[in-house]
Amino acid sequence: MDRGPVEGSTRAAGWAEQFAAWHLTERCLAATPEDGARGMFFQGVVGVVNFLQGEEAGAKCLAASGLKELNAAELYPVTRFLEMTAEVTRVLRPQLGDWEQALRYIGTQATVDFLASMFGRELMQAAAGNPWRMLQHMAEGYRAAVTYGERSVLWTGDHSARFVMRRDFMPAPYHEGVLQAALEAVGAQDVQVHGRQLSLLDTEYDVSW
């Protein structure tokens, strides 16, 4: 018996949430105690929730990480960031459409906040308004921001590149938002970013502008 489009869409949303939770849980299981990310990433994501849903929702998402307060420069276990992200996507999905859109949005907005920080201003200065420099400095700058993974850039044209991430814990849509926001911040136009998951923790992104 056909139960109608409303129940069908509700069921699909439920499966999407289960998939999202499984995806982030698998990444948590792959992490070690040495895998950490700086507090500025947590702050950026909480800031997105505060803006869209209010401070009460932001506090709830922070609580999901098991942290009570954040220091922008301090390293925290990446598993805490993933646990917080799972809650953030659950909270924002109804407003933004689906799990991938929620991830892409928080990646974009968290990057905008990051570029306004002390660390971000240094990156903007090093990029000097040049998209090529921005991508190269981003690949190098990750080493100071997280303790895991490797990033590299392969130039594929005058206005295109392939950004490769090895052993990175965030799903592809998050970094699609990150890369798009970073390039637009240095004036790149018509930015397109498409991620391909090579394995659970390895992704490559085709970037053009």
Rank of each mutant, 00 (worst) to 15 (best):
S65V: 01
A12F: 02
L82M: 13
A21T: 07
K68H: 13
D202P: 09
W209Y: 14
Q18I: 09
G129M: 06
L198T: 10
S208N: 06
S65G: 05
S208W: 03
Y76H: 05
C61A: 14
E140Y: 12
E69G: 07
A188E: 09
G187P: 04
L75Q: 08
L179K: 04
L154V: 15
L70H: 03
Q125P: 04
V88E: 01
A172I: 06
A57I: 00
E184Q: 15
V146L: 12
S65I: 05
H194I: 15
V49M: 01
V78C: 08
L67R: 09
A181K: 00
T147R: 12
L67M: 11
A185T: 04
D98V: 12
H194F: 13
A188L: 12
W22S: 08
C28S: 13
D202C: 10
R151K: 11
L198I: 12
L24K: 02
L103W: 15
W209Q: 05
W99E: 15
G107Y: 04
V191D: 04
D158V: 07
S152T: 13
Q109E: 10
R133T: 00
E184M: 13
G187D: 05
T156C: 08
V193P: 06
F51T: 05
E7G: 02
Q136A: 14
A86G: 08
V88Y: 02
R196S: 07
K68G: 14
R133I: 02
P33S: 02
P77Q: 07
L154Y: 11
S65H: 00
Q43W: 09
A102F: 03
E69M: 08
A102D: 06
A72N: 02
F41P: 03
D206Y: 04
W15K: 10
L92Q: 03
V153Q: 04
S65A: 14
T156N: 08
R90C: 03
L82R: 08
V88W: 03
T89C: 10
A63D: 13
A13V: 09
R196E: 09
N71L: 15
R93P: 11
Q189C: 04
G58M: 01
V178F: 00
M84A: 11
M1C: 09
V6Q: 10
F41Y: 13
T89H: 05
E69K: 10
C61M: 06
F42Y: 15
E122P: 07
R151F: 14
F42H: 10
D113Q: 06
A57H: 01
Q18N: 06
A37G: 04
Q53A: 11
F114D: 02
V45P: 05
F119A: 14
S199D: 14
A144H: 10
V48D: 01
D2I: 11
P94S: 14
A185W: 02
A57F: 01
H194D: 14
A102I: 06
P5Y: 14
L62E: 00
A57Q: 03
M118F: 12
E176W: 05
L52E: 04
A128W: 00
R11M: 12
T25Q: 07
T10M: 10
R90I: 01
S117M: 00
